[in-house]
């Protein structure tokens, strides 16, 4: 197994890389201009965080790979993002539900990381907390607004929740890498974040008049890289194509 810290940083960076990419797919086709601009801001924040996380991952690894090298020259099995973020955009409701579920986890994770024993991780987390606080405010408002809006918007949001809820559990699974981070005081145990997440989720869903699925089944395999969904490969063929087709070029 490679260095757990490197693995861990790839998990953080791949989450923001993959989700930032997904959100950027909305550019130019959002339901209303104001939303188009807001989504681009979210994507830009996430791309910026990716540069920091993967940049640090490359430094830790010490093999001369920078953030771009890691983003554009690894294969599907090397990616360490949770399955939730690679799920396709679907309709706007699915996109915002995915965003809300991730933001809720992301913010509590980043707040914990801001107190990390690792100085650079703490610094990146502190910067990201400000950005993600706003992401969460916005996605929460949207989930509530659309859940409580019209019959159609309510139905679509419920469908989005049903579709994505099986990907929630993976964010809170702990493995050896997490344990190593906990031991070194670098990061919290993901499982410890679940209770607060559930409370927040329940509150928002109640206001949104949405019902949490009864089945707690959770897909896994993203953050370990053991088994991604088919969607990630398609995303990478697009994202990495130029770099792979012209490996000797600089851009």
């Amino acid at each position: 197994m490679s260095d757990p810290l490197f693995e861990y940083l790839c998990r953080l960076g791949d989450n923001t890389l993959v989700l930032g990419h997904r959100v950027s797919e909305w550019c130019g086709v959002a339901p209303v201009l104001e939303e188009d601009i807001a989504l681009a801001n979210v994507a830009l924040d996430l791309i910026g965080q990716t540069q920091l996380w993967l940049g640090l991952a490359g430094e830790v690894e010490g093999d001369g790979r920078d953030a771009d090298r890691l983003a554009f020259h690894r294969d599907v099995w090397d990616f360490r993002n949770v399955l939730l973020v690679e799920q396709p955009n679907g309709d706007f409701g699915q996109t915002m539900m995915r965003q809300f579920l991730f933001d809720t986890w992301h913010l509590s994770m980043l707040k914990a990381l801001a107190g990390s024993s690792h100085e650079q991780i703490a610094a990146i987390a502190e910067k990201s907390v400000k950005e993600v606080t706003y992401h969460l405010e916005r996605s929460t408002d949207t989930v509530i607004g659309l859940g409580d809006g019209t019959e159609e918007s309510h139905d679509r949001m419920q469908k989005a929740l049903d579709r994505l809820y099986p990907f929630v559990g993976e964010m809170f699974l702990s493995d050896d890498i997490d344990a190593a981070m906990v031991t070194q005081g670098i990061a919290p145990d993901p499982a410890s974040l679940r209770k607060a997440f559930d409370a927040q989720l329940d509150a928002v869903l109640a206001e949104a008049t949405l019902t949490k699925p009864a089945d707690d089944f959770a897909h896994k395999g993203g953050k370990t890289g053991a088994r991604h969904t088919e969607h990630l490969g398609h995303m990478l063929t697009q994202m990495q194509w130029l770099q792979r087709a012209y490996p000797d070029a600089s851009w």
Partner: peptide, 20 residues
């Protein structure tokens, strides 16, 4: 100016549109 469904959304939209 901009469009928004209510005041809270107007402020959030303003943040995204006019303070980039």
């Amino acid at each position: 100016s901009l469009h928004a469904a209510d005041a809270e959304m107007a402020i959030k939209n303003a943040r995204d549109v006019y303070t980039r």
